[in-house]
Design a protein around this nucleic acid. Sequence first.
DNA 1: AAACTATACTTCGTGATATGATGTATTACA
DNA 2: TGTAATACATCATATCACGAAGTATAGTTT
Lengths: 106, 106
Amino acid sequence: MDTQLKRGLLDVCVLAAIKSEDSYGYKIIKDMKPYIELSESTLYTILKRLETANMLTVRTAEHGGRLRKYYHITDLGIKRIEEFKNEWKELLSIYQFVSREDEANE
Amino acid sequence: MDTQLKRGLLDVCVLAAIKSEDSYGYKIIKDMKPYIELSESTLYTILKRLETANMLTVRTAEHGGRLRKYYHITDLGIKRIEEFKNEWKELLSIYQFVSREDEANE
DNA sequence: AAACTATACTTCGTGATATGATGTATTACA
DNA sequence: TGTAATACATCATATCACGAAGTATAGTTT
């Protein structure tokens, strides 16, 4: 998918990926892959941004002798997802504007 | 609407705005306004970009003693709109990923 | 044991781009 | 005469996705 089109979607997708249960970097990428792909550098940038925005919290835990960072969504993060659902209505309207056929010529 | 979410949409919207008939800057902004808002500086940047990409051609014409630049969509521009309709399917899939409820909790 | 792959996270530089600010110039209207 | 609307242009800035490169451990293959 086009890079520009992804913007504004990635943040919400990452939040959605940790919504039902806490997750960590590598798993988030895997879970999102069927829907939208992103690189590690992109993901960790986003995670940091969402943390700064208080949309998620981080907790470090050991797993198999190695440290993992688990990300947990906050109320603000859930709110962000709800906001996106509203923005989706605007996207639908834009899609109709773009995909409408020229009535005058039919 | 969120600036980031607009990216990747604006180009296609501008193309859609000149699809049925040639148009000019000020009118494009007005026509798009109900669907998606953009400033003049943004529009002229986009128009230049689309021209460079051969998705539209420009023609200067006099109107009311003043010069206007009329923009005409090319085959490549029309193709770009068709491409977006395909990308829309991916957007739909992303929306479902984001808005799905956690089945395990219901 | 050595080599390789998968897992896991981090940092840095770059390019694309939406936007506000600002500027120029003409027409229409009060 | 002044103000708003029309019309286009340029510049600096901030945001952000991404590739490249790096560090480190666990598991698997040869």
